[in-house]
Amino acid sequence: MALIDRIDEVGPPPRSTQWMNPARTLAILAVIAIHTIADTVGTRFAEHGSEAWWIANVIDSASRWSVPVFLMISGALALDPAKGGSPREFLSKRFWRIFVPLVVWTGVYIPYRLFAMSGYETGWNPVLAILTGSPFVQLYFLYVLAVLTLLTPFMRQLTVHGSRRAQWGTAAILLGIGMLDHFASYVFDVGDPNIATRFLPLMGYYLLGWIMRDHLLRGAQVVWAALVFLAAVAVTILWAGLGPGAAPWTAVYEYLSPTVVVMSLSGYLLLHRLFDADGRGYLGLRRLYPYSFGVFLLHPLCVYTFRDWIGVPDSVPAVLVHGLVLPLVYALLCTAVTWAALKVPVLRVAFGEVPRNAPVPAPPPPPGHA
């Protein structure tokens, strides 16, 4: 009994984090799938309730775990007390990995949206888009991650000194705040996010990524987690298609909706079980993960550019191709571009690589040093 109490206080023993590499690759494929068929679900290319719409809805609903899992993996790695280092060292590295790409790719996508996509929307204001923390479809994630990065040295105090109960309690409160924010926003139409607040609803996922990182499902737990995941996906599909309101999917698809929360937490644990380190190649997923950040940054350019050439997902066959085949094609193409860009020193920083000549903060002097 004492051992059980001790595990409850400090968590399970540390495990390898190698499983996160193929998990991250699978998550980016799901993100691309969401973006390839989002306009079909949004009734731009198909009517709500049509066969094409339902297929797109199934693909979109089943992919909604991806962004929360990305955030949980980020938290699991950034909040690890074993990594040590001072806050200054941590933030110095993250400046190159998060903040520089945020600025560079905001500068890429604003002109792209203004000129290459000018036929899709009118009256778009880039300054307001930046102030909302979402200048393009995927860049909001960098704005969220940037603020969470600034808070990480403080959150590490909880992962270093806080008991397991305190960590779980804090994460539950943060996730509850996020879900309440989602409820207030969509039911009462209040609380629009902006550059300073967009991170807060998702902060619970960031902390839960660390708390749940070393939990490995065993035996019947795997079956129950799979059933919970599938049930959450099924409810999301049905609510998106049959729920109240003119566009019910806009509420249930959000990353803080109850079904997506359940889907994401169970999916995180299932991915750990599926990809628990054992040396397998996982169909090449591990080979793609070093370039997953580049795929994340680049893939909208493929999605929107190639869609103008090959046609939109407006029929069942087209939705299946866009939602199931093209995400892999786009991922491979973006991987190739990222691989090439990383060979060019001036381009490396745009993809989050720390320059070789970047200044490294000096370590603090030892205690008592005059």
Rank of each mutant, 00 (worst) to 15 (best):
A336F: 00
W309G: 00
L285C: 10
G267P: 08
V295S: 02
L301M: 12
V321M: 10
H299A: 09
L285V: 08
F275E: 11
W339P: 00
D278M: 08
P345G: 03
P327A: 09
H299C: 08
D278F: 03
L297N: 07
K343N: 03
P345N: 07
V319P: 03
P290W: 04
T335M: 14
P290A: 13
C334F: 02
V303H: 08
L297W: 00
S292Q: 11
D308G: 13
L269M: 14
L265S: 03
V321N: 00
R287V: 07
V321C: 01
P327S: 08
L347S: 02
D278T: 11
S315E: 05
L297E: 03
P313A: 10
D276Q: 14
P313W: 06
G323M: 04
F293H: 04
F306H: 01
H299M: 08
V295E: 02
T305S: 15
R287P: 03
L332A: 14
V329Q: 09
V319M: 09
R280S: 14
P313I: 05
V337N: 00
F296E: 01
T338H: 01
R273E: 09
L332P: 04
Y304N: 11
F293L: 13
L342H: 08
V319C: 10
L274W: 15
T335A: 15
V316C: 05
S315A: 11
F296C: 06
G279E: 04
D308C: 00
R307M: 15
P313E: 06
R273P: 00
R286G: 15
G281C: 05
A336V: 05
I310F: 12
L285F: 15
V295N: 03
L274G: 09
L283Q: 11
Y289A: 15
P317A: 02
L297P: 06
S292G: 07
V346N: 00
P317V: 02
A318M: 05
F296R: 00
L347A: 12
L347E: 03
T335F: 10
A336G: 14
V303Q: 04
S315N: 01
G267A: 10
L333V: 12
R307K: 15
L265Y: 06
V321S: 05
V303Y: 05
P290T: 12
G281A: 10
V316M: 07
L297T: 04
D276W: 13
R273M: 00
G294Y: 06
P300L: 06
Y304V: 10
P313F: 08
A331F: 02
A277P: 01
Y282H: 15
P290Q: 10
C334H: 08
P300K: 10
A318R: 13
F293Q: 06
P317E: 08
V329F: 04
A336Q: 05
L326M: 15
L320V: 10
P290L: 12
L288P: 01
V329A: 14
G279V: 04
A336N: 00
V344R: 10
G323I: 05
G294S: 03
A331L: 10
L283V: 09
V295G: 06
G279K: 01
T338D: 08
R287H: 14
V295L: 01
Y268W: 09
C302E: 09
L288G: 06
L347D: 05
A336L: 13
S266A: 15
A340Y: 08
S315C: 07
F306S: 12
G294R: 02
L297C: 06
L271N: 10
P327I: 11
S266F: 05
V319F: 09
G284H: 13
